[in-house]
Design a protein around this nucleic acid. Structure first.
Lengths: 172, 172
DNA sequence: AGTGTCATGTAAAAGGTTACATGATTGG
DNA sequence: CCAATCATGTAACCTTTTACATGACACT
């Protein structure tokens, strides 16, 4: 149930509409917590229903601007400090690695080569994202930069690992 | 729908019962694709129903040993070579980082310190797993070792990043 | 006048988690 | 004979994905 906390987190910075939040998810937050349009609107309605956020203003085209309520801030802080993060994540990229033995060695090698390329592209995309953002000193900037640094290091680590792995199976 | 491919992949090595597969998920595969008992049994029944696997033998206590069928092998190869892996994964650990600004600096710092410890523990667990496995030359060993190396590098990368990140916010 | 973007909502299906339920066999 | 382990199954619920559906406003 982290989507609700992702929304609370974004609303803790500034009020926003579902549409605004959707755009944020498509750019920055997509890398750590992808969410679809339908999911976001549904969850916002539910959050408003349970009083964690409120409709602060209504604009043209039915736009509803949500604002975080005190209860929402409390819930966000509770999640950040008390709820243990999940240890195990899913990675279908890694899952495939376990079963590369059913392929011919050249196919297995090709898969790892693809991962090298994927990691390079990912790294480059993050670099461009970093350059395109107008960083300032607010919270999302400070911690967004730290999260982005994680992404850069992650992609670099994966590229190096994939290069090493491709090398492991090439000689056979 | 990667669970079905995880099961096909394990059965491509050797026939196994739901219980056997559950044990494998609890140890080695848990790190890349956690699955529950109920999920595994349900999916096995479905896979047998669609003919991708067959019940090869029945043992004591209602044990059913499943064997992969040719159609299952074909599906597994198709997934490995043709289906594009998913780029974006979810990480509630990283998601929290974006919102650490709502906490006091010492609380944010404590969160990152916790991540350092978590990464060290994860690294140590994988090291022990590596030592406890009786590695041989079969496919799962070769590629399992490569996957495990990924895990070790990942935990090391995360530890270093968390140390760097904790350092970033300490001076404020 | 028409296109693109802004803007929201809902329904169905698939995937995943938690909990309940049951019973056979083995080893001490 | 008792406990641990082996062994399977199902139901309810929550989360996520995909698809459908609608319309207002701004700009050219």
């Amino acid at each position: 149930m982290s989507l609700r906390h992702a929304l609370l987190g974004l609303l803790s910075e500034r009020p926003a509409s579902g549409y605004d939040l959707l755009k944020t998810f498509e750019t920055s937050l997509a890398n750590v917590w992808p969410a679809t349009q339908s999911q976001i609107y549904t969850e916002l309605t539910r959050l408003a229903g349970s009083g964690l956020i409120t409709v602060a203003a209504e604009g043209p085209r039915g736009r509803k601007e949500y604002r975080i309520a005190d209860e929402g801030m409390a819930e966000l802080r509770h999640w950040l400090t008390e709820v243990a993060p999940q240890r195990n994540t899913r990675s279908d990229i890694l899952l495939r690695v376990f079963f590369l033995g059913v392929l011919r060695p050249d196919q297995a090698h090709a898969y790892l080569t693809e991962l090298i390329a994927m990691s390079e592209e990912g790294h480059e995309q993050l670099r461009q994202l970093h350059d395109s953002i107008d960083w300032d000193d607010d919270n999302l900037s400070v911690y967004g930069r730290i999260a982005l640094e994680y992404g850069l290091r992650f992609q670099a680590m994966r590229r190096e690992w994939a290069e090493w792995a491709a090398d492991q199976i090439k000689p056979r």
